[in-house]
Simulated assay, not measured.
Amino acid sequence: MDKQDATTFVHDLYHAVDRKDVGYLSDVLAEQCRFRLGNNPEVINKGQILEGNRHFFESIKSMSHSIEEVVFQAPEESGAAKVNCYGSVYYERLDGSNTSAVFATHLQVEKGLITDYLVFADLSAL
């Protein structure tokens, strides 16, 4: 993975998230992956991560991420690339009202699979 691959990876990931595509997430998450969204508890089981995302996706009508920057750190001896990004996310609630938040995401990617997926955002307005 290089900087261009990392940028494409992030954009593909967030396009899938915006589509609420749990199948895509299943394809890119490692079996043992650490996931945390906002202030929610950390989850380390792929099945629980997918179920949590499914539940979150059902709690909103739609979302749209705008990525402002992707920062890439090449793999070291561990073989894990570190990819960080930040931007804005726009939500449409189930009642049709809208809100937005800024976010930052830390990803650790090994052999094309996410092993660390930490999203930092204040989602209290949802």
Rank of each mutant, 00 (worst) to 15 (best):
M1F: 12
M1N: 09
M1L: 14
K3N: 08
D5G: 07
A6E: 01
A6H: 01
T7S: 10
T8Y: 03
T8H: 07
T8E: 07
H11G: 01
H11W: 04
L13Q: 10
L13S: 14
Y14H: 15
Y14R: 05
Y14A: 02
A16Y: 09
A16Q: 11
V17I: 15
V17W: 08
V17N: 08
V17G: 01
D18P: 03
R19H: 10
R19P: 00
K20R: 15
D21T: 07
V22A: 09
V22W: 09
Y24D: 06
S26D: 15
S26F: 03
D27W: 00
D27K: 12
V28N: 06
V28P: 08
V28R: 07
V28C: 14
L29W: 08
L29A: 06
A30W: 00
A30D: 04
Q32P: 00
Q32H: 12
C33G: 00
F35L: 10
F35K: 06
R36L: 00
N40A: 09
P41L: 03
E42W: 08
E42N: 04
E42M: 15
V43D: 04
V43Y: 00
I44P: 00
N45G: 00
N45Y: 05
N45I: 10
K46D: 02
K46H: 02
G47N: 09
G47A: 04
I49Y: 10
I49W: 08
L50F: 03
L50K: 02
E51K: 09
E51L: 07
N53M: 15
N53H: 14
R54K: 13
F57K: 04
S59R: 09
S59Q: 13
S59C: 07
I60T: 02
M63K: 01
S64G: 10
H65F: 12
H65V: 13
H65D: 12
I67K: 05
I67D: 01
I67R: 00
E68L: 04
E69Y: 01
V70A: 07
V71Q: 04
Q73K: 12
Q73F: 11
A74S: 12
A74N: 01
P75H: 09
E76A: 14
S78I: 07
G79D: 05
G79I: 06
G79P: 03
A80N: 05
A81T: 02
A81V: 05
K82A: 06
V83D: 07
N84V: 10
G87W: 04
S88R: 11
Y90R: 11
Y91N: 02
E92L: 03
D95M: 01
G96D: 06
G96K: 11
S97A: 03
T99L: 03
S100G: 10
A101I: 01
V102G: 12
A104Y: 07
T105A: 08
H106N: 13
L107R: 05
L107C: 06
L107G: 04
Q108G: 15
Q108S: 15
Q108C: 14
V109G: 05
V109N: 03
G112N: 07
G112C: 06
G112P: 04
G112D: 05
L113T: 04
L113H: 12
I114S: 08
T115D: 12
D116Q: 12
Y117G: 01
L118Q: 13
L118Y: 10
L118P: 00
V119W: 01
V119F: 03
V119L: 14
V119E: 06
V119Y: 00
F120H: 11
F120S: 09
F120P: 00
F120V: 08
D122V: 01
L123W: 02
L123A: 05
L126R: 06
